[in-house]
Design a protein around this nucleic acid. Structure first.
Lengths: 260, 260
DNA sequence: ATGCCTACAATGGTACGACCAAAGGCGAGA
DNA sequence: TCTCGCCTTTGGTCGTACCATTGTAGGCAT
């Protein structure tokens, strides 16, 4: 045990079992309380190896942990190394997606959750967003409607547009917490909503309903907007019920869409 | 340029490095599509080392990644090894907590979010929960009130109890999505609510209010329950405003509570 | 003087081999 | 039969050597 005498060391040697986790925690703590900021670079593995007084493997495992957490980005070559990263919602969303894959939620529960989120977000959006944003939302909703009214709708584009509409709306609520929840939802299950778009009649009704919702929001008419949102989920529930009626299969597989 | 491989490499520069991540993905895929089930054990590191044809370090790094994701649990000793684990909300909550620490949200946004969640959850809880659970909730709320009415309240215990009350309530909503959101909230910032408990007058009012809320829920009186919830957040907002008025400091540090 | 090109150094990625530490299993002895 | 201690398995760590990638500096040609 060579207690490193270099006072300057930001890190202290470890000895307990699971050294890599201990080190990961130390580095994480350093990031969290600002001793290390996003964009900065950690010492090289070989350097940390001596600072911590461990083998290089341990350091590498610690880095792998933090990398998986999304805290680090590792680059090779000269001037490479482990750089502190800005976390973004994707990490949260990914771990949620993982969780949901092992714990399939009944579609009804999902809908219930999404519906209440939508209602709240709409309320906040009407209250907080600029008129510009509201108009933009309406414009995009109309665009979606146009796409979906075609004979051969571009499902990829419409799904993407639907997603964007939801994100826009969440953004207009001016509350980041709602944003990431929506984001996580979008990632977790690429939205049953798209089932709506498969059937022609549902498709047109849903599209028109989106436009109506957006219009109500643009005009600041909360109750009307909430009414349209309610109708959206009525449609969705109907659509899913029909789908389940056809395929006697339970919903399990329906949920297990893989997207990574 | 001695890229001896085909022109394809121009578009697929990967394949270099990242062996551990490749292996992690393979194992993860095996878990996801059921080739490996929770409770099962992976081969030993030395065995996988030869199966994958890599060094042991790579295997260990892959395991560390999956362990961090919460997919594996590693035990030492004979009959040890990497066991496939059931995912639980903690992983989601942890990554959310991490995210929130790097992206501090204004307290008001937090309160706004929590309040709408509480209202929804309460609504669902009244509709879905057994009477037994409702009574249990009331009982715990009363216990909290008792604790907080003492001259020297046990803040640790009361915080924990407050947390449990929230979790219980979320559980009663019978929707796992609300559960993990609440869970994540609790982990992310150990609740500003506790600020309420520092001041004697707020403390007693908040405690009484919790009991009232629980009682209203137990009696199935939705509107009354929502009223009490509203009052809770009125109190919380007041309390925080006062606190900010005293310390001219902005809220930044207030949010950066470290609890890991 | 300018610009290209190569060699070098820094750094992560991988391999191998050795040893330590725990933890369960099994056999010897009381 | 029960208990205790060794033995095997298996993760945890160390250390070294080597490879691959990448930025840079310095040399060479124009």
């Amino acid at each position: 045990m060579t207690k490193n005498t270099t006072v300057q060391t930001m890190f202290i040697p470890v000895q307990a079992g699971r050294a890599s986790e201990e080190i990961a925690l130390q580095i994480e703590a350093a990031i969290m309380d600002g001793r290390l900021s996003p964009g900065e670079r950690l010492p090289s593995e070989r350097e940390m190896q001596s600072q911590f007084g461990t083998g290089r493997g341990v350091i590498r495992e610690a880095i792998k942990i933090l990398k998986q957490k999304g805290l680090l980005e590792v680059k090779k070559g000269a001037k490479g190394g482990a750089y502190i990263r800005h976390l973004d919602v994707d990490n949260v969303s990914e771990s949620l997606a993982l969780f949901l894959k092992q714990h399939p939620v009944e579609p009804e529960k999902l809908i219930e959750f999404r519906e209440t989120m939508d209602r709240t977000i709409t309320q906040l959006a009407i209250a907080h967003a600029d008129q510009n944003e509201k108009d933009a939302l309406l414009k995009e909703a109309l665009r979606l409607e146009t796409i979906l009214r075609e004979e051969e709708p571009d499902f990829i584009a419409s799904s993407e547009l639907d997603r964007q509409l939801n994100i826009m709306l969440a953004n207009m609520a001016r509350n980041p917490l709602f944003e990431w929840v929506m984001h996580a939802m979008q990632m977790g299950f690429s939205s049953h909503d798209y089932a709506l778009y498969e059937d022609k009649t549902y498709r047109e009704r849903a599209a028109a309903n989106w436009s109506n919702t957006a219009r109500a929001i643009a005009q600041g008419e909360l109750m009307r907007a909430l009414g349209f949102i309610g109708y959206h989920y009525v449609l969705l529930r109907q659509c899913i019920d029909e789908k389940n009626a056809l395929t006697n299969e339970p919903d399990a597989e329906f949920l297990q869409k893989d997207e990574q």
